[in-house]
Amino acid sequence: MTRATLARLFAAIVVLTVVIAVPMTQIHWDGTQASSQADQIDTLLNVMIVLSSFVFAVVLVMLGYCIWKYRAKPGDESDGEPIHGNTKLEVAWTVIPTVIVLFGAIYSWIVLGDIETKAADALPVNVTAQQYKWTFNYPLPNGQSVSSNKLVVPSGRQLDLHLTSLDVIHSFWVPEWRIKRDLVPAGEGGNDIDNTVRVTPDRLGTYNVVCTELCGFGHATMRALVQVVPSDQFASWLAKQPRVKPQAGTATGSSTGSPSEYSNGSPTGGP
């Protein structure tokens, strides 16, 4: 292959990379950003989209070039050149991808550290899931708490969400916040489950909590409303809610028995 061909191929790869990457990064695939974590995650995603577009362009251009250039003429039944390998090339395509993925790993590690840093004034909320509903419980300084079936939160303040499930595994996801974590039935402080997830909503509006872990026939519609409001409005909302006395378990009015006659986690039968 001549230098000129090589240069042309490289140019084609660059052009294709741009053609794929530009529209792909311009469209906000992830949708609205409504938390201070979302931006970093989306940036990471965009960096990956650009790198991936490059890799994909290399593959497409090389494949296209070979098909165009080396397609056998009809009737040509001879063999190709007996090239068995090329150490330099093989080293190159082992080392370069290694560097790229290690870069990705370190970058992700940094982002992960950032989005999970705990803020001093984080607002604790206990989230309890059961087939097929959500309960949000706000502990108050006086030992009482407020319970709600929608998640009302102040904008700009970090939430420290403590997640529990009363039956099977569910998963807490607010797409606009980019944050997701399973709610595992683990009993009180049980079994070393990492049940705390942090997120800082920073955009006023109404969103949905979506359950993303299959939890039974009601899984698809297991949603709860999220309202992100200015902090003074949050304070007055909280003040207006009825207080509940503290009790074992995080959810109010939770039944420890089976919440539905369907699959309730533990096996049902006697012997």
């Binding site: 090389m62 070979c66 098909i67 080396y70 040509d76 050149e81």
Partner: peptide
């Protein structure tokens, strides 16, 4: 891909 280079495809 490299196998395709210089081939009779």
């Amino acid at each position: 891909l490299a196998t395709l280079f210089g081939s009779k495809l």
